[in-house]
Amino acid sequence: MKRNEGKIREALGPFSVPACDPEKMRRTVRLAKAAYRERQVSVRIGFWEFLSMQLRFIGKWVWLAQAALLLPVLAAAGRPPAGNSLLLFFASAAPLVAFLGFPEILKSYSHGMAEIEACTRFSMRKLMGARMLILGLADLCCLTVILAASAAHSGLPFLQMILYLFVPFNCTCCGCLTVLDHVKSRQGGYFCSVVCILCIVFFSRLSLIREYYEAAATGVWAVLFFCSLAYFAAELVRTFRSFDGLSAACKGTLSVPW
């Protein structure tokens, strides 16, 4: 075939190509550059990379406040609790742990930055979802430490301790999320603090009544736990969805997928 290549080329030669339009070429270069720049903006980032990025925007005072809450637990670890001090601590610490994250979630609204955040690189829903996830995980870690530190010497069954700690936590979260779902403004933070105080007062008063913390009442606590958990999950989804209401005003924004 090689010796015939010249002949073949000669025979195929007449099928020539008209010269390309230089203007079209310039246009292609221009559009390709624009497409390249656009790709740079919309480049995908990983889920964990996005979370670590958002972690830096969580105020340091949240971590400090959680550490301050853990300090008495860790200091008292190894000593048997006096009277019903453990239940009282659970009743007041769990709502506080739950409450700490909410001002952080609401800060975009309380500082009047919600519109700007909704029009930035990531959608409002993604930003809020990431913040809620980070703060939720931090809360869970905090509660686990409290539970682990007080489990050894409390003399209470572990399952009951989980219920006594998580029911006030879930109830506070439900109340704060309901507020967050309906009031997205500076006032939201105040309402959340009211919910938190009410929960602390209620569960602290409850912890003083011994009958409610006896083995016979465990069933009621379990029902309360599952009911509050179900409401918590539903409210979490509703609140998460409600963040799109604001972003809907900025439909044209470029939201980066992750």
Binding site: T28, L31, A32, A35
Partner: peptide, 14 residues
């Protein structure tokens, strides 16, 4: 099509 080739190249450069 030539234009699309280069646009596709740029968009999927990563």
């Amino acid at each position: 099509v030539t234009q699309d080739v280069f646009l596709h190249f740029c968009r999927n450069f990563d």
